[in-house]
């Protein structure tokens, strides 16, 4: 399993728990559009993601994060120290 796939798998697990299994989640799932997460839930999700992956996610990257894939890419970059 590549690092990206591991991140994706962890995100699926976390998001399924957050949305109580109400949605099928894949890379193209939109956090707001498909999962109906509001801005506060996304902020809370980011805090949980930071703790889970032991990274710091700047608030400024969030407007570019629309889908699960966008979030996974950002996490991968930050875990490699590219943020």
């Amino acid at each position: 399993m590549t690092e990206y796939q591991r991140i994706l798998s962890d995100l699926y697990e976390g998001l399924t728990s957050l949305t109580k299994g109400r949605f099928e989640i894949d890379e193209n799932t939109e956090l707001t559009g498909s999962l109906n997460l509001d801005s506060l839930q996304i902020m809370e999700l980011v805090l949980d993601v930071e703790d889970h992956f032991d990274i710091s996610i700047p608030v400024s990257v969030l407007p570019d994060v629309k889908t699960v894939k966008d979030l996974a890419i950002q996490i991968e970059k930050l875990t490699r120290g590219e943020g």
């Binding site: 902020m43 980011v46 805090l47 930071e50 710091s56 996610i57 700047p58 608030v59 400024s60 943020g83």
Partner: peptide, 14 residues
Amino acid sequence: IYDGCRLGGAKTIR
């Protein structure tokens, strides 16, 4: 506070 940080371009973490 959020707006000030955004205007300056600092890496802002909550």
